[in-house]
């Protein structure tokens, strides 16, 4: 029951004229460099209005960098990324971000519920405390990802898949219509994979856009409907059925196109 209320797009999104007119994410001629080394070169991409998008490419292709550039976490050398037609600074709180699991200290003194409640912090506002009602609300999102029993467990005592689901629940608590996730399926168990896939499908049904950096080529057609093939440049972007082709994948990973089974030169993570 909590899940139904939880996954509906928030009222502000439905009413926003901007959200109707502009695509959730629009990237224009974006280039990003780290210490002079280009990570993204002249990336232009317009997201579909809703659906499940996989950003796919080899290691070092700039996949995480693209997500971070959308969020304003890394500066653009040139070009820009717009969220609902506006700079990210005007859209904080309308984008739910799930960082890589390895980016935080899991020994931190916090319970699963504490972390999920962080998704409510923007709505609670500066200087105001987290109240009982907020915690009850956070509990609903934990239920959505099947973790109500572990609400009070310290986060370091959870399995990797459970930690990932805590992050998903925190993102759901933001009640956004746009979700950016960095490798959510990396190293998770089958239960977590199933629960996350169901959550994403529910979000799509509610009209949200979910963009995942994804590393497992094999599961792309099964989970996602759109794909962005990236190797510093955009190689291809579009529906999985038309753009997730062996030829374009080979081009993305920089391996010669050969019949399956002979592509010995393919990198390990393909």
């Amino acid at each position: 029951m909590a899940a139904d209320g939880v996954l509906a797009p928030s009222r502000s999104d439905v009413q926003s004229a901007d959200a109707m007119r502009s695509p959730p994410v629009a990237v224009h001629n974006l280039s990003v460099a780290y210490g002079g080394v280009p990570a993204l070169i002249d990336v232009t991409w317009t997201s579909p209005p809703s659906g499940l998008v996989a950003i796919v490419g080899p290691n070092g292709a700039g996949k995480s960098t693209l997500l971070k550039a959308m969020l304003g976490l890394v500066p653009a050398a040139s070009g820009e990324a717009l969220i609902h037609g506006e700079k990210i600074e005007r859209q904080y709180g309308r984008v739910a971000y799930v960082p890589q699991r390895s980016s935080v200290d899991w020994d931190f003194p916090a319970t699963a519920l504490d972390v999920v409640a962080m998704g409510l912090y923007r709505r609670i506002g500066w200087l105001r405390p987290v109240r009982r009602a907020d915690r009850e609300r956070a509990r609903g999102y934990l239920e959505t990802v099947g973790l109500s029993d572990l609400a009070d467990r310290q986060i370091g005592a959870l399995s990797g898949g459970q930690q990932q689901r805590v992050f998903i629940a925190r993102a759901l608590a933001q009640e956004s219509s746009l979700y950016l996730l960095d490798e959510p399926f990396a190293g998770v168990d089958a239960t977590t994979e199933r629960i996350m896939t169901n959550v994403f499908r529910k979000l799509r049904a509610d009209g949200a856009l979910v963009i995942c950096v994804h590393h497992d080529l094999g599961s792309v057609p099964e989970i996602f409907d759109h794909v962005l093939l990236l190797n510093r440049h955009v190689i291809a972007a579009g529906p999985v059925v038309t753009d997730f082709t062996p030829a374009l994948i080979a081009k993305t990973y920089g391996v010669p196109l050969e019949p399956l089974g002979q592509a010995k030169a393919a990198p390990d993570d393909v």
Binding site: L71, G72, M118, R170
Partner: peptide
């Protein structure tokens, strides 16, 4: 007391804190 929740999130996950404008 006033900034407890801000201190908690910035210590735990500063990148996420930045994405919600904190």
């Amino acid at each position: 007391l006033l900034l407890f929740k801000e201190l908690r999130i910035v210590c735990f996950d500063p990148v996420f804190a930045a994405t919600i404008g904190l």
